[in-house]
């Protein structure tokens, strides 16, 4: 268990660094989502299921949705959807 936890903690730090150095906003948000998910797994290991549920619902769910909406609002994901429409 300790090894697994260490591995997850390393994952957290890697995610945080990747958020710092990612250039595309969309990628950064997805990485942030995975950061929250890893955090909630760690909280399960640390015997705090209340926090794990909350973080999974809020950090990985609602906060990320808000990030996506903001990005959409400022036309951040527009180019992708345009491409999709062209192909379809």
């Amino acid at each position: 268990m300790k090894t697994f936890e260490t591995f997850l903690l390393l994952g957290l730090i890697i995610c945080a660094f990747s958020v710092t150095f990612t250039k595309r906003m969309l990628t950064a948000i997805v990485i942030y989502m995975s950061y929250s998910l890893i955090m909630s797994v760690i909280w399960v290991i640390l015997q705090s299921p209340d926090l794990a549920i909350t973080e999974a619902a809020v950090g990985a769910g609602v906060t990320s949705i808000l990030f996506f909406v903001t990005l959409k609002k400022i036309n951040g994901v527009k180019e992708n959807s345009d491409n999709e429409q062209d192909q379809g």
Partner: peptide
């Protein structure tokens, strides 16, 4: 947006500390 993510990361780090 990165600033806001930084804020969230900072806060969750404190929460991780507390839970630990």
């Amino acid at each position: 947006i990165k600033k806001i993510m930084g804020l969230n990361i900072m806060d969750t780090a404190v929460y991780l500390f507390l839970t630990a």
